[in-house]
């Protein structure tokens, strides 16, 4: 029993990271039609800025700067690189690929290729007893942050004007424009939100793995892509559900099966979903 509890909470902790990355990717794709390979770079920017700022500013302010830097990177990416390639989606993907390669290499040249020890709050290293299981508190940090983000994101989409524009834009960009709304502002906004969430994922991932390295974003990104496809492009709730499913499956199979079997089973799940509803994947879901 205690093993199941620990695996469940660890799986959900991992799911929290996937969700933070996938929800931003999903919104960016759903609204702007851009498959953003640079999303992993946003994650690394958030982590590295926090790591660099923590000794100077203290951890809480460093986290804020990390998230802000990642959000700014996202917004700049949209404004400078994506926007001029309006409607040329393949070129947009290619540019994010180039940015991802160059950006990670830039981080590497500044801070080196080796992993750095990442700071975490004191209490995250403690453990709490849950139903007989000794659960490290960093799991709760991850899960709590993701739940807060999920609630905030849904409220934003539901109750604000920009949320309305984003939900409508995911459904039909051209029609939003035809109502007199400059939908590109919303593009910049979702890139900034996606950047901020990815940056937060990078920071939380750094605290969870207690280290940060330039390429860390890329490996998490691939599972986030799977979550996006399973959850439905453009759907935040879908991302949350799919992230939980993928995180739990991965943890349980990795524990009870052979090493690496969990990762393989996630991709098998993707294949099954594709075979069962191929049209549902290519089509866009409604946001929120």
């Amino acid at each position: 029993m205690s093993t199941v509890v620990l695996l469940t909470l660890t799986g959900l902790g991992l799911a929290a990271l996937y969700f933070l990355i996938a929800s931003g990717l999903s919104l960016v794709f759903g609204l702007a039609g851009v498959l953003n390979f640079a999303h992993g770079l946003f994650l690394s920017v958030g982590a590295y800025v926090t790591w660099w700022a923590a000794p100077h500013l203290g951890l809480p302010l460093a986290v804020v700067s990390g998230v802000a830097a990642a959000a700014a990177t996202g917004a700049l990416t949209e404004l400078v690189l994506i926007r001029p390639l309006y409607t040329r989606h393949t070129e947009q993907v290619l540019v994010t690929v180039g940015l991802s390669l160059a950006g990670v290499a830039l981080l590497q040249s500044v801070w080196g290729a080796d992993a750095r020890v990442f700071p975490r709050p004191e209490w995250a290293s403690h453990v709490t007893g849950v139903l007989g299981a000794q659960v490290p508190d960093d799991r709760f940090l991850l899960i709590g942050a993701a739940v807060l983000v999920l609630v905030a994101l849904l409220a934003f989409l539901r109750f604000t004007r920009y949320g309305l524009v984003i939900r409508a834009g995911v459904e039909n960009r051209a029609m939003v424009r035809a109502l007199g709304i400059d939908v590109r502002t919303a593009f910049t906004l979702v890139f900034a939100i996606g950047g901020a969430l990815a940056g937060l994922a990078g920071i939380l991932g750094g605290m969870y793995f207690t280290s940060v390295s330039p390429g860390q974003g890329v490996s998490l990104l691939i599972f986030a892509f799977i979550v996006v496809v399973i959850g439905g492009l453009g759907s935040v709730t879908g991302s949350a559900v799919a992230a939980a499913g993928v995180g739990l499956l991965q943890q349980f199979v990795n524990y009870y099966g052979a090493a690496g079997a969990g990762d393989v089973s996630v991709v098998a799940l993707l294949a099954v979903v594709l075979l069962l509803r191929p049209a549902g994947i290519a089509g866009k879901a409604v946001a929120a």
Partner: peptide, 13 residues
């Protein structure tokens, strides 16, 4: 917008 309510469709405009 099929996923939005009638009021939201109007509010957007």
């Amino acid at each position: 917008f099929a996923g939005l309510t009638v009021a939201e469709n109007l509010r957007l405009a």
